[in-house]
């Protein structure tokens, strides 16, 4: 009991709310995907290819001239939206005063929706060679 209440690792597994429990699992499962995808992505964009050569034209002709890489990058975007925005939900629940908490969370989810639309649009519509 006390081990669960005062976990020294992350947030203790929620026991009160079903939604919080699903969020807890979603953050951890998406983290496993992101450990591979995000670190591979950062290595790709900084160690394999120097940022200096990655123009819009280069991305179109090289990086995104493959359906597989586009699907992988879109999958990474989905994992990022789940992990980053549910993580920020937890942070905001801790710090935002209750008076404006609900409105702030709606704003947070609106940003997530905007990034979903922008990211999906570019990955689907950017022409291939």
């Amino acid at each position: 009991m006390s081990a669960q209440k005062y976990s020294i690792s992350g947030r203790p597994r929620p026991t009160g709310s079903r939604v919080d429990l699903y969020v807890w699992w979603a953050v951890r499962i998406s983290s496993l995907a992101l450990f591979v995808l995000a670190l591979a992505h950062f290595s790709m964009t900084h160690f394999v290819f120097d940022p200096g050569i990655q123009s819009a034209e280069w991305v179109r002709q090289t990086r995104w001239n493959s359906i597989t890489l586009r699907v992988l990058d879109w999958g990474m975007l989905m994992a990022v939206l789940v992990h980053g925005f549910l993580g920020m939900r937890t942070v905001m629940q801790d710090y935002v005063p209750s008076r404006i908490r609900q409105a702030s969370l709606i704003g947070l989810y609106a940003i997530a929706l905007l990034l979903f639309v922008l990211g999906t649009q570019v990955v689907v519509t950017l022409p291939m060679d």
Binding site: V59, G84, M88, L118, G119, V122
Partner: peptide
């Protein structure tokens, strides 16, 4: 986590600029 989140908001937008 907050720092990486802030960059990702910028980063999805800048990738969108590749098309726009």
């Amino acid at each position: 986590g907050i720092g990486v989140w802030a960059f990702i908001v910028l980063h999805v937008f800048d990738i969108w600029l590749i098309g726009a």
